[in-house]
Design a protein around this nucleic acid. Structure first.
Lengths: 171, 171
DNA sequence: TTGGAAAGTCAACAAGGCTGACATAAACTG
DNA sequence: CAGTTTATGTCAGCCTTGTTGACTTTCCAA
């Protein structure tokens, strides 16, 4: 296919970046292949525990924000409560997650990782961080900054807000 | 290029980038949230056709490499042939994909998009490219270069090879 | 020419999304 | 206080998409 000209070009101090359909297709495939690598290591570990990605996500965000409520988790994960509940139930039953009734508001359940939960979280995130660290080192600091900038720009506005707010910000 | 500082730091001309666990966690979450945005638009369109992400992936890679075989697709998609076959069957039945018996090797099926398949591919990729284009424009050319560098570094080596080879290269 | 390998298909099962309906307890509101 | 809303949990059932196992057809090499 022919490259499109001015309509899809962005000028920078260093040169011209053509946002041709072909360039964008490369970006799309890069996301697809990279995400596979991104999840590969945790997925392998999870098999040994008979858990899936859904469990990993729950464990990750409970670890990030100990004491977070079910509702907070629902917002961040973007799944239905039935879906999350199924996962949460097995994690509580297996003793990886503790669910405490709220003190302020007794309707809420505050979620914490147990010692065992923390151990699995560490095993999973060690693997994932190792790959991320290797990629960041190989790519260099400026590439990492660009990586983050583009990823942020790709998020839905509401998710971007959540992301920027960080662990403390999910009221 | 970067020098190593302390165990988790990388030095660059512009400053110190600490690869602390916290920084890496931010990178991990950025991938998670960005992938959600990345798939959001096509997912919405696919609902109208009662298709899923698996159909999108098949359509994408058949469009990228017309005449590719089922086996080629399997390698790229990283699923079992049974899983792919189910998706392919519905696409063929619905008249979006044509499957031609190989001339050279009659065991092989060569896959092509029909006119209708091309139309859906365009609708899906237009949506996905629009978001990618907006993100690339907002982030700027240097960020885009960094984005690609990090994503490549995150891929499994075999997938990275596939990615770099591009449409012509999946022998 | 025959046995194994490769490509593809069909069947059945599991994980993890989804919706809808409903229950309970706590908090809030008029 | 009565009625409503909110937070959570649960049951039932459906769909997509991953898996393994068994099978057919085709190709190729000993």
């Amino acid at each position: 296919m022919a490259e499109r000209g001015a309509a899809n070009a962005v000028f920078s101090g260093e040169g011209l970046l053509f946002l041709t359909d072909e360039q964008l297709r490369r970006g799309i495939e890069a996301m697809f292949f990279a995400y596979r690598g991104f999840t590969a290591d945790p997925d392998k570990i999870l098999q040994d525990y008979a858990y899936g990605r859904a469990h990993h996500r729950a464990i990750h965000f409970i670890n990030r924000s100990p004491g977070t409520t079910v509702n907070n988790l629902l917002t961040i994960l973007g799944v239905t409560k039935q879906s999350l509940n199924r996962v949460l139930r097995t994690l509580v039953q297996d003793g990886l997650v503790e669910s405490r009734v709220g003190t302020h508001d007794k309707r809420e359940r505050h979620l914490y990782l147990t010692e065992e939960g923390i151990a699995l979280e560490r095993e999973l995130s060690d693997a994932q961080r190792a790959r991320m660290r290797a990629a960041f080192r190989a790519a260099g600091p400026e590439a990492v900054a660009g990586f983050r900038t583009v990823l942020e720009a790709m998020m839905d506005p509401e998710l971007r807000r959540q992301f920027r707010a960080g662990p403390g910000g999910e009221t």
